[in-house]
């Protein structure tokens, strides 16, 4: 019960942080860190796969409702959620997590968390910018935007984790 409360609290906090604060940050005109993906990244390891997909869809759709881009963030976040298990399995190797560990900086260590976040964010941003332009015409522009935005998103996620994801005081 407490776990679900905690998760929904984190959901609301990250959405508000994204919509009200980070969407106003436009580095160089169009680079916009998308920290809300962290909600999907931090969902506990033992979640049912179908529920993970639905959570991703719901997260993306909520952002879409606020920005006014129906389906764009939902599509990209579902795509990322689809690959979450594969990425976890690839980066963790055979030592699958035990007990109540969560895929967070505090529980799993900075090095693993960084690799995991970087891969997932690149998957998310690539699909997001491809969906947004809906063509392969401006490939170079898409690649540059994906790379630059990914760097800032990962940076934001790491900073957020160091501030809010300390032991004992998990947000």
């Amino acid at each position: 019960m407490i776990r679900y409360l905690k998760l929904s609290g984190r959901f609301v906090f990250l959405i508000m942080l994204q919509v009200l604060v980070l969407n106003n940050i436009r580095l160089g005109g169009y680079i916009n860190p998308l920290i809300y993906v962290l909600f999907v990244l931090m969902i506990p390891f033992n979640i049912k796969p179908w529920l993970l997909l639905l959570s991703g869809f719901l997260t993306g759709l909520t952002i879409d409702v606020f920005i006014g881009t129906p389906g764009l963030h939902a599509g990209a976040t579902v795509f990322m959620s689809f690959f979450r298990q594969t990425v976890i399995r690839l980066t963790l190797g055979h030592r699958l997590p035990e007990g109540n560990l969560e895929p967070t900086l505090y529980d799993m260590g900075a090095r693993w968390f960084f690799t995991y976040t970087a891969i997932m964010v690149v998957i998310h941003h690539t699909s997001l910018f491809l969906l947004e332009s809906f063509s392969l015409k401006q490939v170079s522009a898409i690649i540059i935007r994906t790379l630059l935005s990914s760097i800032f998103t990962v940076l934001m996620i790491i900073i957020y984790s160091f501030i809010f994801n300390r032991g004992g005081n998990k947000t």
Binding site: L53, D64, G71, A74, G75, V78, F79
Partner: peptide, 8 residues
């Protein structure tokens, strides 16, 4: 879910 998103 992807189909719904793309249709939207």
């Amino acid at each position: 879910l992807e189909t719904i998103s793309i249709l939207l």
